[in-house]
Design a protein around this nucleic acid. Structure first.
Length: 904
DNA sequence: GATCCGACATTAT
DNA sequence: ATAATGTCGGATC
C-alpha cells in the first residue's frame, strides 16, 4: 500500500470516527490484514491483559484512558519492560480527544488532537514498511558539497608544496572565500545566478595555469567599492567586504584537475546548504581525523535546542505569551532580545550560535506579526520594519583556525537565510537591508579559550544579559596532553584536583567565574563523567562556592547525530545560574519535572559531595582490593584452546595454570586461564618453550610501554604486574556491569582462582559481606554516587564501598544475614547450568532467587532501622544523612576531610 | 603499590 | 546495521 492511499484511509477514519473501533481502524488504514485485526480484537493476538490496552507484537502498545495525565501514562508505558519485550514500534495513548504516540525506535514523539491525526499520517508509516524518508536524505546537499570540497582540498594540498607553511591560515581563508562565492552565486547575493562558476570557466585556461591569478583578481574585486575600471567580466561582481576579502592572500596554483573540480563544486546547488551544520561538515574537509565521519562531533539541532530552550528561549516565549495583547510590552521585549548576547566559548564552526541566532530571529518575527495584528485590529498604521537582531550580538572562541573562519561565514549565511524568511513571513511590511556589503560579523576569536580572558571576546557590562552555551571538548584526565593538562591546572587555580578532572571542567570553572554576580546564565552539553564518581567532588564545590547552582539538567543520554560515525560517549546537559528562588527542572525525554534542588549527580536530592576514601567509612568492614593486573600485552592470559594446546605439549605445565576471573568470566561464564608463576617456579616455567616465549613477550611489552610504572615491571615478566592475594577464597565484585540488573552479580570463588583487575575482591570473606554488597540499599548507593562507564555500574572500592555507611552489627545479626546468603547460594545452585547473566536477567530472574534477595534486603535494611523503607529515594536520603553523621564523627577523631551540605 | 577512568571497545543480535 | 555490556593499561595518587 502506498503512502497516498494510507493518507486517504486515515482521512476516512477521521471522517467516520468511531471510538470503539479507532485503534483497529488505524491499523487497517496502514494495511494490516483483516484476519490479524479480527484475532487482535478476539484477544489471542493481544498480548496485554490490562483493561483498555492492546499490545500487538512488534507493532504497537495502545492504551485508552479516561481524561487526565496522558503524558504520565505514555511515560510509564514506554518504560514498561514486560510490554517492551514484544518490541512494539509505537506506544499510543489517547483519551479520544488528544493522542500521544512515541516511536520507540527513533524516539520521535507525536502529540495531536485525535481528529487531526490524518495530518500526521506519516508518523505511523513504519507499520506499512516505510521508514520516515526525510531522515535518510537529510543533509544530502551538505554531504555532497563536503565530499566535493574534500576532493578539491586533497588535490590542492597534494599539488601545492608549502601550502601549510603558515599553519594553513592562508588556505583556510581561501577555502572560506570559495565557499562564500559558491553560496552567493546560488542565493541572489551575487546579481547573476551562477556567475562565479561561469566566469571562472569562461575566463581561465583549461590547464588551470591561470586559475589562481583569476581568483586573486576576483577576490580583490570583491574587496573594492568601485569596480568601474575593471575588465567587463569582473565589473558585475559586487563589493562584499565584511572582512572576508580584506586581507590579501595568495591563491594556490591549480592543475587542470583542480580547476575541473572547482567548477564541479560550483555546479552544485548551494542554496540547499544548511548553515546549521554545514560548517561542521566542511570542517571535516581539513581535519583528516574527522574525514571518515564527515563532521563527526557536530551537535545535532535537537540537542542544541535542549540547551537553548531552558537557557533562555522558553522564558522569552513565555514573556511573549504573557504580553500577547500589549504592543508596548511586545516592543520592549524585542528591544530586550536585541540586547541579548550569546557566547559560545568553544564554538567550533558555530552551530550553537547559528541555531540561537535563527531562533531569536524567528521569535522576533512572531512578535512583529502579533504587533501588526493588534495594530491592524485597531486600524493603526504599521510602518516597514527591519530586524533589530544583529550578528554582533553573537560571540565565540574557537581554537581551530578553519572552524573559526567557518563560524564567521556560516553566521553570514544564516543572516541571509533569515532575512529571506523575515521578508516572506512578514510580507508587506518586513524588510531587510541588502546583505552586501557584509556588515557586522559575529565576534569570533581564534584562540585557546582556557587561556584567554573571555571578557576580551565578549565584554560584560553590569546589566548585560549574556547566555553562555556550547559543547566544549571532553577529554579524560589520562588522555590529555601536557598542554591540556596545563590548561586544566590553570583553570583550577592551583587546586590539586585538576589532575583527575576532565578537560571540559575548564569551561565550567571559567564560565562560572564569568556569570558570577550577574544576570547571565550558562549551559553546556557535557560528558556525563563530571557528574559521576570521583570527579563530582573535584569540580562542583568550586562552582557552588561562588553562589552558583544548577537550575536545569538533562541526565545522561547517548550522544548521536547524523554524521556517519558517532562518538562513543554519553552526555548530560547542565544549566547553571546564580543562586535564585526561580524553579529548577530535571528534564528527560518529554518529561520536565520541577524539583527543589538539583545536586551535582543530577538527581533531585540534597547537595552532598562524596569524596573517595582509602578505608571503609564503616570501619569494621573488611578491606576491598582490586584483582590482579596483568599489564602483559595479553601474554600471560590464555583461552581454553591455548591452555589445552599447551598441556598437550607438556602436561606438567598444569601446575602453573589457574582459572582467571574478571567481570566477563564471572558474569557470562566465559573461561580463561592465566599463567601464575611463583618466583621459585620461574626456572621450570622457562624450560617450557611456549611459556618462555610468552615471558619474553611480556618483557618486550613492558619495556616498550610509554608508562614508566609499566616499564618497571619488566623485571618480573613471569608475573602479573600487580598481584592481589592468591590461594585464598574470594568474594568477587565486577568492576563494570550492566545497569539493567536489579542486583549486582557477585559471588564466591575458591582459592585456586585468580581474580583479575576487571573485578574487585574481598579475600577470606565472611558470607554476610556478600549479603551486604548485593543488597538493594547498597545498589541504590552505588547507582547514586558511583562512577559509571557511560551508564553502566562501575564498582570501585574508594568511591562505592569505602564510602558506604553501614551500622556496626552484632554477631547474631551477621549470622542472621549469613542464613539469607546461604539461601541465595542455594537458589543459584538450583539453576547450576545458568550463568550469572542469565540468573540476574531482570526479566527472567528465577522466582526463588528473587524472593531470597527480597528477604535479604529486608534483613539488611533492618540493620539500619526497624521501619521499612518505602522507596529508593527514601533509602538514598537516609544513607546521605548517615554518611554525614559518620563523616562528622570521623572529623572529630582524625584530620578534617572535606564534606559539605547545602540546603535540601 | 593501587587505582578510576575512557568524544571507548568489543561482542551479541 | 544497532543493542548490549564490559577489557585493558596509563598516569596519578
Amino acid at each position: 500500500m502506498n503512502a497516498s492511499q494510507i493518507e486517504k484511509n486515515v482521512i476516512a477514519l477521521v471522517e467516520n470516527f468511531n471510538k470503539e473501533e479507532f485503534v483497529f481502524d488505524l491499523l487497517k488504514a496502514y494495511g494490516i490484514s483483516k484476519t490479524s485485526i479480527t484475532r487482535l480484537k478476539k484477544g489471542d493476538f493481544n498480548l496485554s491483559k490490562a483493561e483498555g490496552e492492546v499490545l500487538y507484537k512488534s507493532k504497537m502498545l495502545f492504551k485508552e484512558i479516561a481524561a487526565g495525565s496522558l503524558l504520565n501514562t505514555i511515560d510509564e508505558l514506554t518504560k514498561d519492560v514486560d510490554s517492551l519485550k514484544h518490541n512494539p514500534r509505537f506506544v499510543i495513548v489517547t483519551d479520544y480527544k488528544t493522542l500521544l504516540a512515541k516511536d520507540i525506535r527513533t524516539g520521535l514523539a507525536l502529540d495531536t488532537p485525535i481528529l487531526e491525526i490524518h495530518k500526521h499520517f506519516g508518523f505511523f508509516l513504519p507499520w506499512a514498511g516505510q521508514e520516515k524518508y526525510a531522515q535518510k536524505n537529510e543533509n544530502f546537499a551538505d554531504r555532497k558539497a563536503s565530499e566535493k570540497m574534500a576532493k578539491m582540498y586533497d588535490i590542492l594540498v597534494q599539488e601545492t608544496p608549502g601550502i601549510y607553511d603558515d599553519g594553513g591560515h592562508n588556505l583556510n581563508i581561501f577555502l572560506s572565500r570559495l565557499l562564500f562565492c559558491f553560496f552567493a552565486e546560488d542565493t541572489d547575493i551575487f546579481p547573476i545566478e551562477g556567475m562565479f562558476t561561469d566566469t571562472l570557466e569562461q575566463h581561465t585556461q583549461k590547464d588551470g595555469s591561470d586559475t589562481h591569478t583569476f581568483l586573486d583578481r576576483l577576490f580583490k574585486v570583491l574587496n573594492t567599492k568601485d569596480n568601474s575600471k575593471e575588465a567587463d567580466h569582473f565589473k558585475e561582481f559586487p563589493y562584499v567586504n565584511g572582512g572576508l576579502f580584506r586581507d590579501t592572500i595568495v591563491s594556490p596554483k591549480f592543475t587542470a584537475a583542480a580547476r575541473k573540480i572547482i567548477i564541479e563544486c560550483g555546479d552544485l546547488d548551494w542554496s540547499e546548504i544548511n548553515p546549521d551544520i554545514f560548517g561542521s561538515m566542511i570542517q571535516a574537509v581539513v581535519n583528516p581525523t574527522y574525514r571518515s565521519g564527515l563532521g563527526m562531533h557536530y551537535t545535532s539541532v535537537p540537542n542544541i535546542m535542549k540547551v537553548i530552550e531552558p537557557l533562555f528561549l522558553n522564558e522569552l516565549n513565555e514573556e511573549f505569551e504573557k504580553h500577547f495583547n500589549d504592543v508596548k510590552k511586545l516592543n520592549k521585549l524585542i528591544n530586550r532580545i536585541a540586547k541579548i548576547k550569546v557566547f559560545d566559548p568553544a564554538c567550533g564552526s558555530g552551530n550553537f550560535l547559528i541555531i540561537a541566532y535563527k531562533q531569536l530571529r524567528r521569535l522576533e518575527i512572531k512578535i512583529l506579526a502579533r504587533i501588526y495584528e493588534v495594530n491592524h485590529q485597531l486600524n493603526l498604521g504599521f510602518p516597514d520594519v527591519y530586524t533589530k537582531i544583529k550578528l554582533s550580538q553573537f560571540y565565540g572562541i574557537e581554537l581551530d583556525d578553519f572552524a573559526h573562519e567557518m563560524a564567521i561565514l556560516s553566521l553570514w549565511l544564516a543572516e541571509h537565510q533569515m532575512n529571506k524568511e523575515f521578508i516572506s513571513e512578514l510580507h508587506d511590511y518586513g524588510k531587510a537591508e541588502d546583505i552586501l556589503p557584509l556588515k557586522e560579523a559575529g565576534h569570533i576569536t581564534q584562540g585557546n579559550a582556557t587561556r584567554l580572558d573571555w571578557e576580551d571576546t565578549c565584554p560584560k557590562n553590569d546589566d548585560d544579559e549574556i547566555y553562555i552555551l556550547g559543547n566544549p571538548p571532553y577529554l579524560g584526565a589520562r588522555l590529555q596532553d601536557v598542554n591540556q593538562k596545563r590548561d586544566v591546572e590553570l583553570a583550577f587555580r592551583g587546586s590539586k584536583e585538576y589532575k583527575d578532572s576532565d578537560y571540559i571542567t575548564c569551561w565550567f570553572i571559567l564560565g562560572a567565574e564569568f556569570i558570577r554576580n550577574s544576570k547571565s546564565k550558562l549551559s553546556y552539553v557535557s560528558t556525563n563523567s563530571i557528574c559521576q564518581g570521583e570527579q563530582v567532588a573535584y569540580l562542583w564545590p568550586k562552582i557552588f562556592d561562588q553562589n552558583i547552582e544548577i537550575d536545569f539538567a538533562y541526565p545522561s543520554f547517548k550522544w548521536t547525530n547524523n554524521a556517519k560515525g558517532n562518538a562513543g560517549v554519553t552526555v548530560v546537559i547542565i544549566g547553571i545560574r546564580n543562586n535564585s528562588s526561580n524553579p529548577k527542572y530535571l528534564i528527560s525525554g518529554s518529561h520536565k519535572g520541577q524539583v527543589i534542588n538539583i545536586n551535582p549527580y543530577l538527581t533531585a536530592g540534597p547537595t552532598v559531595f562524596i569524596n573517595k576514601r582509602s578505608k571503609p567509612i564503616s570501619f569494621f568492614l573488611p578491606q576491598m582490593v582490586m584483582g590482579s593486573m596483568a599489564r602483559d600485552g595479553g601474554n600471560l592470559i590464555l583461552t581454553t584452546e591455548e591452555k589445552e594446546k599447551l598441556l598437550q605439549v607438556d602436561n606438567s605445565a598444569s601446575i602453573l595454570l589457574r582459572p582467571l576471573f574478571g567481570s566477563a568470566e564471572f558474569i557470562q561464564g566465559k573461561e580463561r586461564w592465566c599463567l601464575w608463576i611463583k618466583d621459585d617456579q620461574r626456572e621450570f616455567a622457562e624450560s617450557i618453550s611456549n611459556i618462555k616465549e610468552r615471558i619474553n613477550k611480556v618483557f618486550d611489552f613492558r619495556v616498550s610501554s610509554k608508562a614508566k610504572t609499566t616499564n618497571g615491571y619488566s623485571s618480573i615478566p613471569h608475573k602479573f604486574a600487580q598481584r592481589s592475594p592468591s590461594d585464598v577464597e574470594a568474594l568477587i565484585i565486577p568492576r563494570v556491569s550492566s545497569e539493567l540488573r536489579e542486583y549486582l552479580p557477585i559471588g564466591f570463588l575458591d582459592s585456586n582462582c585468580i581474580v583479575s583487575d576487571s573485578a574487585q575482591a574481598i579475600f577470606n570473606p565472611e558470607p554476610w559481606i556478600l549479603g551486604l554488597i548485593s543488597s538493594k540499599i547498597h545498589t541504590v548507593w552505588i547507582k547514586a554516587v558511583g562512577g559509571k562507564l557511560e551508564t553502566r555500574i562501575r564498582y570501585s572500592a574508594s568511591v562505592c564501598y569505602n564510602t558506604f555507611p553501614f551500622p556496626e552489627i552484632s554477631q547474631k545479626q551477621k549470622e542472621q544475614i549469613n542464613l539469607h546468603v546461604f539461601e541465595i547460594l542455594e537458589e543459584r545452585e538450583k539453576h547450576s547450568g545458568k550463568t550469572m547473566a542469565q540468573l540476574y536477567d531482570p526479566n527472567k530472574m528465577p522466582k526463588g532467587l528473587k524472593e531470597a534477595h527480597h528477604q535479604l534486603d529486608l534483613a539488611i535494611e533492618r540493620c539500619y532501622r526497624l521501619k521499612p523503607f518505602e522507596s529508593d529515594t527514601e533509602r538514598l536520603e537516609y544513607l546521605f544523612k548517615e554518611y554525614e553523621k559518620m563523616i562528622n564523627k570521623n572529623t572529630l577523631l582524625d584530620k578534617p576531610k572535606r564534606t559539605r551540605k547545602k540546603k535540601a
